[in-house]
Computed example of a mutant assay.
Amino acid sequence: MEFETKGCAGMSQGGFRSRRLVFRRDGAEEAVRFSRSREWPRSELVDASDENAGAWEVGGSVTFHFALDVASGESCCYFQGLVQEEVDRAFLEMCDLFDTWTLAELIEGVRSARSSGDLVAAVFRLGLGAPPVFTARFYNTLCITADHKHPMVRAATMRTIAYMEWPELHEMLDVFVRTDPDERVRREASLVIEAFERVGIRRP
């Protein structure tokens, strides 16, 4: 098992959400094919005509979700439900059945990136696939891009924090709003703080 947080569900607006699994390639067809193989009915939580998202009823309160993140171009899937144990069980039973980046690969992608463009793509994947609760190895990797000399990378880091949804990252956002020399980075950090406050992600 990768790290101690592999199956840990975190709080979300819809109850509890598993870690997002980030597809190596466009995951829409894989998610639909997998749901049909399980004979899961479509959930009304997402409009069936939405090409960038989908949801299916797994059982109990648990739903399976697919989403394409338009900003990064990355696609992912996750489980969500009202009971944490049910979400954890569904995730652990099925997380190895998808062609997705592992936790170790998400971290290594940032550490081995050769260009600013590669680093931006890697940090977006890192944020989307991060555990839903604070994890030191992911935080330490995020700090690599937060300290980068290129403002494009730092701005991408701020947006990545929005994906991670960790209350512990409020402090980093506050620092960037106050001290980053680039206006775009400061603006991105400020927008994430506003988003956190809007959905109730408060400072610890």
Rank of each mutant, 00 (worst) to 15 (best):
S75A: 04
C76H: 09
C76Y: 10
C77Y: 10
F79P: 11
Q80G: 04
Q80N: 02
G81F: 08
G81R: 06
L82N: 05
L82V: 04
L82S: 03
V83W: 05
Q84P: 10
Q84N: 06
E85M: 13
E85Y: 09
E86Y: 11
V87G: 07
R89C: 09
R89Y: 09
R89E: 11
A90T: 02
A90C: 11
A90R: 00
F91R: 01
E93V: 04
M94E: 06
M94Q: 13
M94G: 01
M94L: 15
C95L: 07
F98M: 00
F98C: 00
F98K: 05
D99W: 02
D99H: 05
T100D: 06
T100W: 06
W101R: 04
L103T: 02
G109H: 04
G109W: 08
V110G: 10
V110P: 13
V110Q: 07
S112G: 04
S112C: 07
S112T: 10
A113N: 09
A113H: 04
A113I: 02
S115M: 02
S115H: 13
G117P: 12
L119E: 13
V123P: 14
R125C: 02
L128Y: 09
G129W: 08
G129E: 15
A130F: 05
P132W: 03
V133I: 07
F134G: 01
T135M: 15
T135K: 15
R137P: 11
R137E: 15
R137T: 13
F138N: 07
F138K: 04
F138I: 02
F138Y: 09
N140Y: 07
N140A: 05
C143Y: 02
I144C: 10
T145Y: 03
T145K: 01
D147T: 02
H148L: 00
K149V: 00
H150K: 09
H150G: 02
M152N: 08
M152V: 07
M152D: 09
V153T: 06
V153R: 13
A155Q: 10
T157E: 07
T157A: 12
M158T: 00
R159F: 10
I161R: 14
A162C: 11
A162V: 02
A162R: 14
Y163T: 05
M164I: 00
M164H: 01
E165Y: 03
E165T: 01
W166V: 03
P167R: 08
P167F: 03
E168A: 15
L169A: 06
E171R: 12
E171S: 10
M172P: 03
M172Y: 00
M172D: 04
L173N: 08
D174G: 04
D174T: 05
D174L: 14
V175L: 11
V175D: 14
V175T: 01
F176P: 01
F176G: 04
V177I: 13
R178K: 14
T179H: 13
T179S: 10
D180Y: 08
D180S: 09
D180W: 12
P181T: 00
D182L: 05
D182R: 00
V185C: 14
R186S: 09
R186M: 06
E188G: 04
E188F: 08
S190A: 14
V192M: 07
I193H: 09
